Simulated assay, not measured.
Amino acid sequence: MGTAACGLKAVAFSAMILIASATGASAALTFTTGKLTSGIGFILVSGSFDFDQNLSHFTRLVKETDPVFVAFNSPGGNPPKAMELGRLIRALGLATFQPRQGECASACALAFLGGTIRYAEPGAIGVHKSSFADSRGMDLDSAVSYVQHITAETISYMTEMGVDPALLQLSLKYESDDIRYLSKSEMAEYRVTTKTDKTSADLPESGNSISPPTSDVPPTTRALPDSSIPNLDARFDIPRAKTGRFRHPKGFEFLRDSPSQQGSKLGMLRNRDRVAILSISDRWYKVRVGTRIGYLHHNWVKVDQFINNQFDDRYIQIASFDNFAEAENYIRNAPLPLTAYLAANHWFAVTASGTFPAKQAAEMLKQMKAKASAPEDAFITVGNTYVRKVCCD
């Protein structure tokens, strides 16, 4: 490929970034389609991620234009919404590419991680500590629980996307008014970018479609049990979730008419409301509450068939592993008394032994981190997805 041709393609791609910049990256999220001179299609995601952003337009554009990759010009925004787009990018089989001409910082980095193949130029991806603006106005207990929930969700998402969750620990070192842009070696170390045989020019420049990754990106993990996974040890059987009680750090949430936060609200639920679980899909329960039928995120149901703990108590989660052997070895070599729980996604959560009132758990975790006896990404959780204790007496 000639130098002049490469230059024209770079100009064409840069022009899309400049167009998005002219509209203002801090505006609401927008999706713009484009093509390189080689004919490769892409979608440019611009603006800030809002919690109520409807992503159906993105899906429609993908079906209509058949793009190969997604690029970004975004300063961040709502982390759960960015993770939702990342999962959508993964489900649609799209690659992600981030040039330095654009911006992809904060929550945008989470969306970038959804790519089946990921390439970013050095200094193109920025991370920092989330501001957790959605927790403002809550009481201390609710705010702490909400922040810890989002942290747990982020760790789960990074693992699902084949990224080292230690990236979150790095981001926590930088306040929300600061940004740490990742070097090429850091992106490789934390698996922010994937290993392929393509050069930096090949992803947006190549005239060939991009093949899905092979062994470089681990398979995704599911949030809820997959009946196709065989259980070789009865300790790791996951009982069918049938009934439970609503439990949310804020004390309330809405029943939805579809398995999505964008679903219409069917009514408010408050902590301890009883639910009957009619069916299970990835990350969502279809439930009956009185005479109403709708959907609840699995994080907000304390399942009767799972482990029983005091309703208002909290766990301090230290680590998580995708296999029992590593979880057991971690506990056996830890200086603190720890416990492992089988989680509903077939992973193993390692926690400080016992459960604690929320305020006590928050203070304990603070002291543990100060003494470096718990990692910086340890967090407090209600443990709704914990199935049973599996280690160690």
Rank of each mutant, 00 (worst) to 15 (best):
G2A: 07
G2S: 13
A10E: 14
F13C: 06
L18E: 15
T23M: 07
G24D: 07
G24N: 08
L29R: 03
T32P: 00
T32E: 12
T37Y: 04
T37S: 12
I40F: 00
F42E: 00
F42R: 04
F42H: 11
I43Q: 04
D50G: 15
F51G: 10
D52S: 14
N54R: 13
L55I: 14
S56F: 00
T59W: 03
T59K: 15
R60N: 12
R60P: 00
V62M: 06
V62C: 10
K63N: 15
E64Q: 15
T65V: 10
N73V: 14
N73H: 15
N73K: 10
P75L: 05
G76D: 02
N78R: 06
M83G: 02
L88P: 11
T96A: 07
P99C: 09
Q101I: 10
A107N: 04
L110K: 06
L110T: 08
T116C: 09
R118K: 05
G126H: 08
H128R: 03
K129V: 03
F132W: 14
A133N: 14
R136P: 00
G137N: 09
M138A: 07
D141H: 04
V144S: 06
T151K: 13
E153H: 05
T154F: 11
S156F: 08
E160Y: 12
V163D: 03
D164M: 12
P165S: 14
A166H: 12
L167A: 02
L167M: 09
L170P: 00
S171R: 14
Y174F: 09
D178N: 07
D178F: 05
I179A: 15
R180M: 07
Y181N: 13
L182Y: 01
S183A: 13
M187I: 11
Y190Q: 07
T194H: 08
T196W: 03
D197P: 03
T199M: 05
A201M: 11
N208M: 08
P212S: 12
P219R: 09
P219E: 07
T220G: 13
P230W: 09
L232E: 12
F236T: 01
T243K: 04
G244T: 13
R245I: 09
F246H: 02
F246K: 03
R247L: 12
K250F: 02
F252V: 11
F254D: 03
R256V: 12
P259W: 09
Q261D: 15
Q262H: 13
G267P: 05
M268Y: 02
R272N: 14
A276G: 05
S279F: 12
D282A: 04
W284M: 02
V287F: 11
V287Y: 01
R288N: 10
V289H: 13
G290D: 05
R292D: 11
H298F: 07
H298Y: 13
N299F: 14
V303C: 02
Q305H: 06
F306I: 03
N308K: 09
D313R: 00
R314A: 05
S320A: 09
D322N: 14
A325S: 11
E326I: 02
E328W: 03
Y330H: 09
Y330V: 10
N333V: 03
N333E: 08
P335C: 05
A343P: 00
W347Q: 00
F356Y: 14
F356S: 01
P357R: 07
A358M: 08
A361S: 02
A361E: 01
E363L: 03
A370S: 13
A374G: 13
P375D: 04
F379S: 11
N384H: 08
Y386C: 10
Y386K: 14
C391Y: 13
